[in-house]
């Protein structure tokens, strides 16, 4: 094997095990974190129920997917869940608007401190958690169907003649595509439409927004709807890419929060950048670089170990470490979010 071919193999290896998975995971985190940051910017609290909202929407989508599958309807090479997605999104929009009406609105009218909202969101989280487990159970669910790969490792090896294969799963490609589309639409909405601008104004300076005649109830409603749409997208894409398990979805709260704070809380652009940074850090820090060393180092130099910075069991630690570093070094985050 020549040195050039080794370097190519090393590149493909990195792309296959680091770049593509991290891009997909980062897209899922970005979608979730934008939802968290939107609610934060408009309602000004960290929503502990976001992970379970995501689980709820994904659950509805899964039920709907099963119904479609048993009716023999499919989306061809794409996962059937894509067809079921609108139902999940609508159900979740209804859910968050109901919880806002019956839970959060009360505290908004009384101008309660943010901690009270957090406690209330814990209540909502508990209820949703119970509901999801009651309806679909606490176990792992896989609902991916359709064509498995866009590019499979075998095809790649055959066509390039390299020892390493690059595989891109349909769900990964789909995740990245949907995320780009959703984020583009979101920014168009926030930057160009009247309602979107009024939301940015409300997030920027609530009192002045009220003086401009911006209707707070409407702004809050739109924020919930956007958060719900993004949460279901994130949840379904995550579920397609990996699998659906209520507890895991709850646990995604931490990377969401870490991404949102890293980017500057209340700043949608920040949340997206934050999502990708968290995902890339997580994947690069838990990847075992042994094989890479085999390609790049002279044969005598390759160490024995896995060459892994951190065991995969500690991937949540990455989010936390990022969070701690941000809080210590720059609490306002990259894009200067609000800090009190």
């Amino acid at each position: 094997m020549g040195g050039f071919e080794n370097s190519l193999n090393a590149l493909v290896l990195l792309a296959n095990f680091v770049l593509v998975p991290a891009l997909a995971y980062g897209s899922q985190l970005a979608l979730g974190a934008v939802g968290v940051t939107l609610i934060f910017g408009i309602l000004r609290f960290a929503n502990f129920a976001h992970g379970d909202t995501m689980a709820f929407g994904t659950m509805v989508t899964i039920f709907c997917t099963w119904a479609l599958q048993s009716a023999g309807i499919s989306a061809g090479p794409l996962p059937t869940a894509l067809l079921a997605l609108p139902v999940g999104i609508l159900a979740t929009i209804a859910l968050v608007l109901l919880t806002d009406r019956f839970v959060f609105r009360f505290y908004r009218k009384r101008r309660s401190p943010p901690v009270i909202y957090i406690v209330a969101s814990v209540g909502v989280m508990f209820m949703l958690n119970g509901l999801v487990r009651l309806l679909i159970g606490p176990d792992d669910r896989k609902f991916t169907d359709g064509e498995r790969f866009v590019i499979s490792a075998r095809e790649f090896k055959q066509s390039t003649g390299l020892a390493e294969g690059l595989s891109i799963q349909t769900t990964q490609a789909l995740t990245i595509g949907v995320a780009i589309l959703a984020v583009a639409l979101l920014f168009w909405f926030l930057q160009k439409t009247r309602t979107g601008k009024s939301m940015r104004a409300f997030s920027d300076n609530e009192d002045l927004a009220l003086l401009c005649g911006i209707d707070p109830d409407r702004v809050v409603r739109v924020a919930w709807i956007l958060a719900a749409v993004l949460a279901v997208l994130a949840g379904v894409l995550y579920g397609l890419d990996k699998s659906f398990k209520p507890f895991i979805y709850f646990n995604l709260l931490l990377p969401f929060f870490a991404a949102a704070i890293l980017g500057g809380i209340g700043q949608p652009v920040g949340a997206i950048v934050g999502g990708y940074i968290v995902a890339f850090t997580e994947v690069t820090a838990t990847y075992a670089y042994k094989q890479l060393a085999v390609y790049l180092l002279p044969s005598g130099w390759v160490p024995d170990g896995l060459l892994q910075f951190l065991s995969t069991d500690y991937k949540f630690a990455i989010s936390f470490i990022i969070l701690v570093l941000v809080l210590l070094i720059r609490p306002t985050g990259i894009f200067r979010g609000r800090v009190l």
């Binding site: 009247r194 601008k197 009024s198 104004a201 997030s203 920027d204 300076n205 009192d207 002045l208 927004a209």
Partner: peptide, 15 residues
């Protein structure tokens, strides 16, 4: 706090 600091001057006027 009488302007929207994160928005452009034009957007301030539009608000």
């Amino acid at each position: 706090q009488n302007i929207f600091t994160g928005m452009t001057v034009l957007e301030n006027l539009q608000m």
